[in-house]
Design a protein around this nucleic acid. Sequence first.
DNA 1: AAGGGCCTCAACCGCTATAGA
DNA 2: CTCTATAGCGGTTGAGGCCCT
Length: 315
Amino acid sequence: MVRTPCCREEGIKKGAWTPEEDQKLIAYLQLHGEGGWRTLPEKAGLKRCGKSCRLRWANYLRPDIKRGEFTPEEDDTIIKLHALKGNKWATIATSIAGRTDNEIKNYWNTNLKKRLKQKGIDPSTHKPINTTDQTGSEPKHHISSSGSARLLNRVASKYSVDSNRDILTGIIIGNSTNIADVSQNSGDVDSPTKKSTSMLLNNMAAASSARTSILINNASTSPGFSDNCSFTDDLTVLFSNEEISDMYMHVDNVGFMEELKGVLSYGVADAGHIKDTPEVNVTDEMDFLDSWNEEDDLDLEKFVSSLDSKVGVFA
DNA sequence: AAGGGCCTCAACCGCTATAGA
DNA sequence: CTCTATAGCGGTTGAGGCCCT
């Protein structure tokens, strides 16, 4: 691959941009639109390389760029998407209107990373720093994702909601109609509280189980689902095979909850889906999961059994 | 007041991906 | 298919501002 020598040419200016240069660039782009970055500097009367012009525009001059401090909601979204996607700044930036990848990257490195460390969370794994002992052995309460899916499905089935696929689809692609329909149309005529419980459990089970089904590339063997279920299309939109594989390899109770929150937050952050279906309400579930103190209760079974006393928060 | 260390963030660098000739 | 130009990404750098002593 031949590298473009655009920034090594003679007479090319580097360093901070002057207001005059900014004005020239803005004026040119307003007249001609974006693109043709290589020839742009000459046409616009700038002694800069095209790459520098593109970056200046993309990261600073673009009119839709939001300035000022990040909101707590933005912080939250960045942290959750980072837990899911890692250092994919451009991907994360697409979920936060008006923020550039560069800005998010800087903000992560200078603020959020430190904040997580102060809270005792490893910013690269998003897990508590001391969940493993000095010998590096597995966490005490580790269970596999398929195991957690089975467990959750068992409890879920107790509440008689059987449309896992619809719920999963609803959560993954942010289509709340499915979730609402399932809640209203299930054969279960018990209290709304019970419906909410089983919805959450099914959501959790579905998310966990679907990961497993992707990994083994055989949805029909996924625990807790009908034989003809296939989630591959939905999930591969969100996760790479490596990510799915990685999740499967490292699932523990704490990690599972974080992943689940990640899955849910992805739906919240995906404004395109939410706009179309304003009735979606995974936020209550997110709040509930956030309120769960994993340090107090690392045992997923205990967590599940404690749900009944807490379900009112998203009834 | 001075200056040294720290922090922030715009800008750069090196690289990959992709499109088109 | 190969080559080249261009776009875009993520890591890194360094200037300038801020804070502390």
